[in-house]
C-alpha cells in the first residue's frame, strides 16, 4: 500500500531498486560488455593487458568458418528441433494418457504422476552420470539387457559411435526434462471444460473428433508456449552435451554452448567466445520474433 506522497514514492523505488540492480548487473551490463569483448582479441592469458579493438574480425572469422555452421546446424536440428519435438509429442501423449479413463480406473494416476516428478527433481549431472552407468559397454544394464534379449550380438558403446550418439544423448535429455512439459500439458488438459467434451460426444463425435474440436483449441496456447520455452532453454543448453560427450566423439556432438565454453576457457580466446555468444543471442532473438509472428495470436489472443 503506497500513498501519493513523495516519501512513499521514494520507499517504493528503494524496495524495487535492489532487485533491479542485481538484474542489471548480471544480465544487462555483461551483455553490453560481451558485445565490446566480441570486437576485441582479448585472450585469457593476457587478461591484465586487455585486448585490442579488432572491429568485426571475430565475426568474419566465426561466420566464415564452415565448421561453425556445422555446429550451428547440429545445435538447431539435433539438440533443439528433434528434442523439443520429441518432448512435445511424448509429453502430450503422456498427459493424455494420465488424464484417460483407463489409467484412472486402473488407479495408476497417482503412481504415474509420482514417477514423473522423480526425473524432474534429478539434477542434470546426476541424470548424465546415471545414464552413462546404464549405458556403459562393460557393466551397463542396458547393454546387458540388449545382449541377453538377442537384440545385440555384443555390447555397443552407444556414446562413442557416431551412429548412436545423438539419439542416446537425446534419450538422456528427454528423460530429465520430459516431466516439465508433461505436467504443464496435464494442467492445460484439466482446464478443458468437461461439459464441452460430453456435448461433443453426445453429438456423435469420436475420440479424435473431440480432441480436434474441443481439447486441442483449449490446450494449443499452452503447447505453443511450452514449445517456445523448450527451444530457448535447449538451444542454449550446455550441461547435457558437455557432461555426456564433451562434444565428442571427435567434434561430432559439438554444439554452440559447448563451443562458447571451449573457445573461452580452454582455447583462451575470450573475444571469439563472446562473438559466438552474441551470434547465439541474435539467433534466438530472430527465432523468438518469427515464432511470435506466426504463433503469437494463438498464444496471447486465443487463450481460454
Amino acid at each position: 500500500m503506497f500513498g501519493r506522497s513523495r516519501r512513499d514514492g521514494l520507499i517504493a523505488w528503494a524496495m524495487l531498486a535492489p532487485a533491479l540492480l542485481v538484474l542489471a548487473g548480471f544480465y544487462l551490463y555483461p551483455t553490453g560488455y560481451g558485445l565490446w569483448i566480441s570486437l576485441t582479441d582479448l585472450n585469457l592469458l593476457r587478461l591484465r593487458q586487455g585486448g585490442s579493438f579488432v572491429g568485426l574480425a571475430n565475426y568474419e572469422a566465426v561466420l566464415g568458418d564452415s565448421e561453425f555452421w556445422r555446429v550451428m546446424w547440429r545445435t538447431a536440428f539435433w539438440l533443439t528441433a528433434v528434442s523439443v519435438l520429441l518432448r512435445v509429442v511424448l509429453g502430450l501423449g503422456l498427459a493424455l494418457l494420465l488424464e484417460s479413463a483407463a489409467i484412472r480406473r486402473a488407479k495408476l494416476r497417482t503412481p504415474l504422476r509420482l514417477a514423473l516428478i522423480v526425473p524432474w527433481a534429478t539434477p542434470a549431472i546426476v541424470a548424465v552420470a546415471t545414464w552413462r552407468w546404464l549405458l556403459d559397454p562393460q557393466f551397463g544394464a542396458i547393454n546387458r539387457a540388449l545382449v541377453w534379449l538377442g537384440l545385440l550380438r555384443e555390447p555397443h558403446p552407444f556414446l562413442a559411435d557416431t551412429a548412436t550418439v545423438w539419439p542416446t544423448l537425446l534419450l538422456i535429455l528427454v528423460w530429465n526434462t520430459l516431466p516439465v512439459a508433461t505436467l504443464a500439458f496435464v494442467a492445460a488438459l484439466q482446464s478443458v471444460p468437461r461439459e464441452l467434451a460430453e456435448a461433443a460426444a453426445l453429438d456423435g463425435a469420436g475420440r479424435a473428433g473431440i480432441f480436434r474440436a474441443v481439447t486441442w483449441p483449449h490446450i494449443a496456447p499452452t503447447v505453443l508456449i511450452v514449445a517456445m520455452l523448450l527451444v530457448f532453454w535447449t538451444f542454449n543448453n550446455f550441461v547435457y552435451v558437455w557432461l555426456t560427450t564433451g562434444g565428442g566423439p571427435g567434434r561430432f556432438t559439438n554444439v554452440l554452448a559447448v563451443e562458447v565454453y571451449v573457445r573461452g576457457f580452454i582455447d583462451f580466446q575470450l573475444g571469439a567466445s563472446a562473438t559466438i555468444g552474441m551470434v547465439m543471442a541474435v539467433a534466438m532473438a530472430i527465432f523468438g520474433a518469427i515464432y511470435m509472428r506466426f504463433a503469437g495470436r494463438r498464444v496471447l489472443g486465443n487463450a481460454p
Partner: peptide
Amino acid sequence: PWIVLVTP
C-alpha cells in the same frame, strides 16, 4: 541464455 553471460 546464460552461456552468453559466462565469458563477459
